[in-house]
């Protein structure tokens, strides 16, 4: 099992939870939406945490590439987190139309972000961190 496969699997899980949340908002089901949105935000923030606290620093250290692709990825994480806060506020006041407009923006931002990670960064990690992957993967707290 490689870093890219595990992390891509987590992207797919986040996409699935995102769709569930959006479907609940679209169906105007506030009760289900509260639960599904909480689960989505928790899962994706955990994913960001794994990257920012474990994978990116290790990759930067081993590759010597600090200030490169990982910085761009962290910048996009911040952009997504701003959208999460907007969506949380919109949920509190039950502004579901605004919530869906924000989630629409998030979907594309998330999609192009994930594409860059899966096609470039994770593959670089697979080769740079190949020797450490066996010990590293169980620490991520993701299904292997």
């Amino acid at each position: 099992m490689s870093i890219s496969r595990v992390m891509k699997g987590d992207h797919q899980r986040c996409d699935h939870l995102f769709s569930q949340m959006e479907n609940d908002a679209n169906a105007d089901d506030s009760c289900a939406l509260n639960a599904s949105s909480q689960l989505f935000f928790e899962t994706i923030e955990h994913h960001f945490g794994i990257e920012e606290e474990i994978l990116f620093p290790l990759f930067e250290e081993r590759s010597g590439l600090s200030g490169g692709p990982t910085v761009v990825m962290c910048h996009e994480h911040r952009q997504m987190k701003q959208l999460f806060s907007q969506m949380r506020r919109q949920l509190e006041v039950k502004a579901l139309a605004d919530f869906l407009a924000t989630s629409d923006t998030l979907l594309i931002l998330m999609g192009q972000h994930n594409a860059k990670e899966e096609q470039i960064l994770y593959k670089m990690m697979d080769s740079t961190l190949a020797d450490e992957a066996v010990d590293l993967l169980p620490r991520l707290g993701l299904p292997i």
Binding site: S19, N23, N26
Partner: peptide, 8 residues
């Protein structure tokens, strides 16, 4: 078979 039901 998409997961996202919203038909935009």
């Amino acid at each position: 078979r998409r997961k996202r039901r919203l038909a935009d």
